[in-house]
Design a protein around this nucleic acid. Sequence first.
RNA 1: GCGCUUGUAGCUCAGCUGGAUAGAGCUACGGACUUCUAAUCCGUAGGCCGGGGGUUCGAAUCCCUCCAAGCGCGCCA
Length: 594
Amino acid sequence: MFFIIYIIFILKEDILLLNCLKKRFLKDIITLFPEIENQEKAEYKSILASVRIEEPKNREFGDLTTNAAMVLASKIRKKPSDLATLIKDEILGRYEEIKEINIAGPGFLNIKLKDSFLIEKILEVFKQHDSYGSNDTAKGTKIQIEYVSSNPTGNLHIGHGRWGVMGDILSNIYSLNGFDVCREYYVNDYGTQAKIFAECVRSVYLERFDIKYPYPEEGYPRETVSKIADILFNKFSDSFIKDKTTLEFDEISFSRNAIRIMVSLITDTLKSIGVEFDVWFFESSLYGEGSFDATLDFLKERNLTYDEEEALWFKSTDFGDDKDRVIIRKDGNPTYFASDIMYLINKKERGFEYLLYILGADHHGYISRLKAIASSIGMDKDKVSIIIGQLVRIIEGREVQKMSRRKGKGFTLDDLVSEVGRDAVRYFFSMNSFDTHLDFDISLAKKKSNQNPVFYVQYAFARIGSIIRKTNENRPVNLDADFVSGMEDYDSQVFGNFLLSIEKNDFKNPSERNLAWTILLFPDTVRDACRSNAPYFVNQYLYRLASEFHYFYKHNKIITKDKINIKRLLLALAARLVLKKGLDILGVSAPERM
RNA sequence: GCGCUUGUAGCUCAGCUGGAUAGAGCUACGGACUUCUAAUCCGUAGGCCGGGGGUUCGAAUCCCUCCAAGCGCGCCA
């Protein structure tokens, strides 16, 4: 029993090729140069932090390269080249998986791994199959990721789509790294905007009964409002009008239903691109059962507030905010900031160790105030991360369209989905970093739908599907029946036995080797994407893998007349498995044929 | 005015915790299907990394400054 657990543990750790190698390498460096550890702690940390093992820019230098000798040289008072030789002889030279080490340039150590090691690793991909790519680094750590959280007063626009997709993919990535993720949408159904929205809907709704009710001057665009009014009318008829003669109106129920329907439309839109939440958190729920008073007491007890000009203020500057914020306005109503405090307290009480927000750049002013609240209620502000995503600009032809819900104009997310489809939307929105201002050219998106990079990746997957079908049709002589059935579902029993018989000799050509190498980088990609909050690492990885596969496919035959090249077939199957896992992370479909 | 983000090939973007000759895709041009899907592959072209200073063995990357773009600086939400 113990043995089995140990094996699993080893596999889980070991599957991170680069990250694990680095860990081991650093450990060996400390053993070889104990004086590093004796230095001041901060400095010691920074030395080790700047040691890298990574793919060299130029592939000709090898699989991996490290700058260790150069980084350590100044601290250990040796010439980089001498140090490189020492590290080569005493550390890297003893690693079984390494085939050769070259010292180059000012002191780089270039490493080439053994083919047999790579093949061994590829076989492990099959042993892991479903769990390949995931790791235990953050085992069970509770994290909440909040994204989209658009006001329920209109349709989602394209910008919201970006946060929806990015948030969803990031959640997937965190899950694969072992986190226990809660995906949450915060619904602002309390306060002025929600009220104005309800008033708008009410005006249109009452028109159905020839009752005049003023449409708010700064109201929302009629298009969406009418839609909501229609649904309410069809569903509830006149039941909100309590008395036909006095026109007494059930405002509360009406407004709650109007918001609820808007939320359900938003839910549908998000669902259409595969974005679903664990929790829809309603702002209004924060104000039930005296919880607002309790919060005020909580803050006052801790001396975090003060009165000024008839308003109640929160001392957020004490916690790093640029200005103090009003909690209760002169008119006695709580501000949005008051909700923020209660919501954060609520999140804390639910036991999340980490909180992650994805906000649009128009909300970047939030960072300091959210962190201030977090600190004030005793949370570690470093465990509250706020990702600011740059806004999406819509461009049609040469015209820049501003996306403003209030003004109503604009291309909605629904429009986009029906134009280009879910897969393209998801790929398109996740392929850049959060810091990129995304210019979304609608005409291009329509026109380009067939040259979207997503098809390139999917095509690689479809091609492998074709190989499998072919293999099943004219079952070659060297392939046994069990193996073929194993390919279909990666049954590890059948498949695993077969794998043991694979010869672990060298790859025949660079394209086989490169494909294998890229397949093996997947777990590290998942890890790094999490560490850097960078969903686009996955897109880039998949594009690279697809590219590697297309090249491999073009230059290597897997099926010949009556025989099959088993090693190549395995590579294709491993690629297939990883492409599927990767596309799953992105929430993009993996078609068997195209 | 202050703050956040960005400025890299004609276009869209990687590379930014300093490292070897700055990379992809799209576009353009030229090649490759009797053989597992040509939605593919191969090649060519394309760059004062916004400008200027500094830090050092070494800068697209770090610091300063200027220019340009987007966004924010409410008792709105």
